[in-house]
Design a protein around this nucleic acid. Structure first.
Lengths: 193, 193
DNA sequence: ACTCTTTTGTGTGATATACAACAAACGTAT
DNA sequence: ATACGTTTGTTGTATATCACACAAAAGAGT
């Protein structure tokens, strides 16, 4: 959702507090054992207030994921627009900011992936990235004679798998390195040939 | 403080936010150049809300100082009550928690002391500690034949000076070490002779 | 089966805060 | 001295959140 700067400060603050509290509790407790009261207490927010913004804890989980994935995507499309006509560097920069975003929000991603609900989260992130890649490939239009669906599927799963590996291994390499590596892998395999 | 009724969560949150924001801005900007708007923006709070709790920025500064000094004092009288009848260890433990409190709130103390208004803050902390020491000495009643005022003054200034040195030199020793050292200095000079 | 406790949604009136506008005081440059 | 932008307190209205209460649902233990 667009984070309109016009929203009431109280709303922004409580949402942030709830999100942060939810993530904290999530990293400590199995999701099914998390109670709304846990979150409200941690967020220092009245329990009823949570129901003012989210229908239940499942909704909270989903909106939390959506929120982060949106931010993640926009964090790298943002830098894409800064440099207008670059091709190669543009992509690598976008990758860098993506890895950077994950690094900055490591708590979120790692607890999401550590959860038993891993599959749910992986599906979501894959779906998000797939559509994002789709746009990119459509715009480039340089993949003549190849099955588009196949390319997308291949790229997305490979990418998500790489992300997951990177996250679950506590980010053994810096974002810049990862961006370079992933890019050369993409290059070698299909995308710009 | 005095009223046992629980305070509204909103009040607690905004006061915390304002305090934190004020400290942040304070550590970046000279006090006279700080504007209420700076603080409200940083705290993500409406400007008018600050006037709901503080009359002006001077009041805010004072209440902020009072708040921290109160917490500092109670942080070490608290541990004093845990162990009822201990004498020596009791005092050292109290000292430790005091140094620990300062360490945990280093940003506050160091920016207070770094300010041009250093003298103001030093006076306040000295006054607080003086009355605290006064109580202690009164209760102990083992300083026969010595001028009480003199002892208090001596102890307080020495102590505050030590604190100031410790803070301004980025806490070169851990709280435990400081507590031991300060205690032996007290012992050697007057208090329990 | 039955208690007992916890959690969940939902609702009500009270209140803290947001927002926007305002006049006065202040600072600063011309 | 004058003009002009900035900061300050203050106000009035709207609303987000509070505390609290309640009944239904869900678990947990016997």
């Amino acid at each position: 959702m667009a984070i309109g700067n016009k929203t009431d400060r109280r709303i922004l603050r409580t949402k942030e507090a709830i999100n942060r509290a939810f993530l904290e509790v999530f990293s400590e407790k199995e999701f099914d054992r998390i109670t709304i009261n846990d979150i409200s207490e941690r967020a220092n927010v009245n329990r009823g207030t949570i129901y003012l913004h989210y229908t239940d804890k499942y909704d909270l989980l989903n909106r939390c994921i959506d929120d982060h994935l949106d931010k993640m995507i926009s964090s790298c499309t943002l830098t894409k627009f800064i440099q207008e006509k670059v091709e190669e560097n543009e992509a690598i920069e976008a990758l860098k900011s993506l890895f950077n975003y994950i690094q900055e929000n490591f708590l979120f991603f790692s607890s999401m992936l550590s959860s038993q609900k891993t599959s749910v989260f992986r599906e979501r992130i894959q779906k998000t990235l797939t559509s994002s890649i789709q746009e990119k490939i459509d715009m480039q239009g340089i993949n003549q004679g190849m099955d588009k669906e196949l390319i997308i599927q291949f790229t997305a799963t490979a990418f998500v798998g790489t992300l997951e590996w990177w996250i679950m291994n506590q980010m053994p390499h810096p974002p810049e390195y990862m961006a370079d590596q992933v890019w050369t892998l993409f290059e070698r395999n299909n995308i710009n040939s």
